[in-house]
């Protein structure tokens, strides 16, 4: 449950317009805040966007977060 709450919190940081999904432009907006390069954020998006449809859902985001925490895809 804590994982889901944290994941939702991070998702909302990325999804500022509360669209319900995250696109590449949303992640690029975080470039200065997160001190990550444009290329790194592109890679993050590619890794998280499991179905490669150009938008990240909360489910995909949570899967990536759990992968980061547990080292494998558990959701």
């Amino acid at each position: 449950l804590a994982l889901l709450e944290k994941s939702r919190e991070f998702f909302q940081i990325c999804d500022r317009e509360e669209k319900g999904f995250i696109n590449r432009a949303d992640l690029q907006h975080l470039q200065t805040e997160l001190s990550l390069s444009s290329n790194e954020l592109q890679d993050v998006f590619d890794v998280l966007d499991a179905d490669q449809n150009g938008s990240l859902t909360l489910e995909e985001f949570t899967t990536g977060f759990s992968q980061f925490l547990f080292g494998e895809k558990t959701i």
């Binding site: 919190e9 991070f10 940081i13 805040e33 997160l34 001190s35 990550l36 790194e40 954020l41 890679d43 993050v44 890794v47 998280l48 990536g64 977060f65 992968q67 980061f68 925490l69 080292g71």
Partner: peptide, 28 residues
């Protein structure tokens, strides 16, 4: 090699989520 790609992906994700975590903890 999927293993190398997997490891690289984990590193990218780790950077991203660690940054998000420190952003959260760094704010009041």
């Amino acid at each position: 090699d999927p293993n190398i790609k997997g490891a690289a992906s984990e590193g990218v994700l780790a950077n991203f989520f660690n940054s998000l975590l420190s952003k959260k903890t760094g704010s009041p």
